[in-house]
């Protein structure tokens, strides 16, 4: 899932301070699970903004709301008119949600209420770890199922650098050296010899380096297009 983290209240205040009516708009999927931007945190941020406004003596109406996901229009369509009744939407969704909503609120600005951190897993309650970089060309079958792109500080593809210290990365002794983990895991799997192959320079065009990416699932698209051609539903989905 997408992991987010909270922004300092001062940063948020600098974004919202000149608006009269602010909606803190939570997203109840990924960022809720990581306690960054669900309805609960949206409520908390709204409360902090109100208190901050009180300190400054500013009259400001700050409310909160939440929907299941900001990244699919069906979820926020039912409340979009209410959302648009605000001067500012502070979305606590991930960056995807902020962007997606921005395209759909007309003249109402949508600002980010949290920082979108990474794609991660819940290692332990309240502890999230980046495990995938979304590079668009997965090779972890060659690396024991562990990703050197996301988890090696230097995205090394052919083995560890010389900075591995007691199984930890040179960047921080709190970061595991993924190459250490890969080697140990592949030893266990009996596939260590796979690592002898030199992986050639990668084609990064599947990653962010290739420009903004899109995925089109043709059989779903075709269905949607047929639906759109029916006169009674034409344009109904946009």
């Amino acid at each position: 899932m997408i992991v987010g983290s909270q922004k300092p209240i001062e940063e948020i205040w600098s974004m919202v301070k000149d608006f009269k009516k602010v909606l803190v708009f939570g997203c109840n999927t990924c960022v809720a699970i990581c306690h960054a931007g669900g309805e609960k945190e949206a409520a908390t941020i709204a409360s902090l903004i109100r208190m901050r406004a009180g300190q400054e003596g500013k009259a400001m109406e700050v409310n909160h709301m939440g929907v299941m996901r900001h990244c699919e229009p069906e979820y926020f369509d039912p409340v979009i008119e209410e959302v648009k009744s605000y001067d500012l939407v502070l979305s606590t969704a991930c960056g995807v949600g902020v962007n997606f909503l921005s395209d759909r609120t007309g003249t109402i600005p949508v600002y980010p209420g949290i920082n979108t951190s990474f794609y991660g897993a819940v290692e332990a309650p309240g502890f999230f770890k980046e495990l995938c970089a979304g590079c668009g060309d997965c090779i972890v079958h060659l690396t024991g199922g562990l990703c050197p792109i996301a988890r090696c500080s230097k995205t090394l593809m052919n083995g560890p650098c010389g900075g591995t210290n007691h199984g930890k990365c040179e960047v921080s002794n709190e970061v595991d050296c993924v190459w250490y983990l890969i080697v140990e895991r592949m030893k266990k799997l009996g596939t260590l010899e796979k690592l002898s192959e030199v992986l050639p320079p990668r084609n990064w065009s599947t990653s962010r380096d290739g420009g903004p990416r899109r995925v089109s699932v043709e059989h779903i698209r075709e269905y949607e297009e047929q639906e759109a051609q029916k006169p009674e539903t034409a344009g109904g989905k946009k």
Partner: peptide
């Protein structure tokens, strides 16, 4: 470069070979 005795030590010869 080569770090002969860094973790994972077993892998370092393979690393050099690569």
């Amino acid at each position: 470069s080569w770090t002969p005795m860094a973790d994972p030590v077993d892998f370092r010869p393979i690393n050099l070979m690569k």
